[in-house]
């Protein structure tokens, strides 16, 4: 900056309007950082309070007992959540991966564009509307009553866009040279997809599936009127089941003096936060590692 002449002070010691502009810049920077901190504070508060209410009450029974009367544990809800997520993931992966591969690889550009827009529209459908859909289509019209299958499928519909989108991104991000080289060597498109594109797209797809599972794990609205509720451990596809988010929704307004309902709700919330954070951090790690590998491969 210093050019070598003593009289050139204007850059180092700004005066007048330059000084005002620099001061404004600094003020804006601090204001923005302050706003950032203001957002983080309530979230730390939330994590703190939920841990404070949940952690001291954890025992083995929390994980091994069903909720009975005024006490008991979260066993049935943990199993129920895993069961529902299993059904939902099967549904979402089936539909999401097929249509994602199609959109990235086979669909004509115009179709692919519209398909992506529709995928995002599905992501924007409110969860409770999907819950109503599940209630009418899979609980009422089938005369099955509340059942895990309906819950799992409703949750699966909610999860489809995440799997779809990441599958699409994964396959579309395969370098064009790889594809052209494969096809030029006479490979069929299916061979290209399975042998060349899949290994490259897999980490992205997997992170999408995990993300969808983490988000599905925390959903309540699609489940309340489809999976129903049952205090004992789920016994079959067409039986109702309980689940962790439902424990919070059903127990959150019990007074803390009445049984262990409120404590169970906080413990469920704590488990959900822990699982969600773990899965999301795992996704970040996978993605980071994958990016590094991609850079090594193609640059």
């Amino acid at each position: 900056m210093v050019v070598g002449h003593d009289e050139d002070h204007s850059l180092l010691n700004p005066t007048g309007h330059v000084r005002r502009r620099l001061a404004l810049d600094r003020a804006v920077r601090w204001l923005l950082l302050l706003a950032f901190a203001a957002v983080l504070f309530p979230l730390l508060d939330m994590v703190y309070w939920i841990s404070a209410r949940a952690v001291p009450a954890f025992t083995w029974g929390t994980f091994t007992e069903d909720q009975v009367g005024l006490g008991g544990g979260l066993h049935a809800m943990i199993i129920g959540t895993l069961f529902l997520i299993g059904i939902a993931t099967a549904f979402a992966v089936g539909i999401g991966v097929l249509s994602g591969m199609y959109t990235a690889e086979y669909a004509p550009p115009a179709v692919a564009r519209s398909a992506r827009v529709i995928g995002n529209v599905l992501a924007g459908v409110p969860a409770i509307v999907i819950g109503y859909f599940g209630y009418y289509a899979l609980v009422l019209y089938t005369h099955w009553g509340f059942n895990s299958l309906a819950g799992g499928v409703a949750l699966g519909v909610f999860m489809v866009p995440f799997v779809y989108r990441t599958t699409d991104i994964g396959f579309a991000s395969v370098p064009r040279a790889q594809r052209e080289a494969t096809l030029a060597l006479g490979a069929r498109r299916s061979q290209y997809l399975v042998r060349v594109a899949l290994p490259i797209a897999l980490p992205t797809m997997l992170s999408g599936v995990f993300l969808a599972m983490a988000i599905g794990l925390g959903e309540t609205a699609p489940l309340v009127y489809t999976a129903g509720w049952s205090s004992s451990t789920v016994t079959g596809l067409l039986q109702p089941t309980s689940y962790l988010t439902g424990a919070i929704w059903n127990f959150y307004d019990f007074p803390s003096t009445e049984g262990s309902f409120l404590t169970l709700a906080f413990q469920a919330a704590f488990l959900l936060i822990v699982i969600s954070l773990t899965v999301n951090i795992a996704i970040q790690v996978i993605t980071d590692r994958y990016r590094r590998r991609l850079r090594g491969l193609f640059q």
């Binding site: 925390g218 988010t245 959900l272 936060i273 999301n280």
Partner: peptide, 9 residues
């Protein structure tokens, strides 16, 4: 990723 029902309680 934090579930909405957790914000609720």
């Amino acid at each position: 990723g934090i579930p909405s029902v957790v914000y609720g309680i």
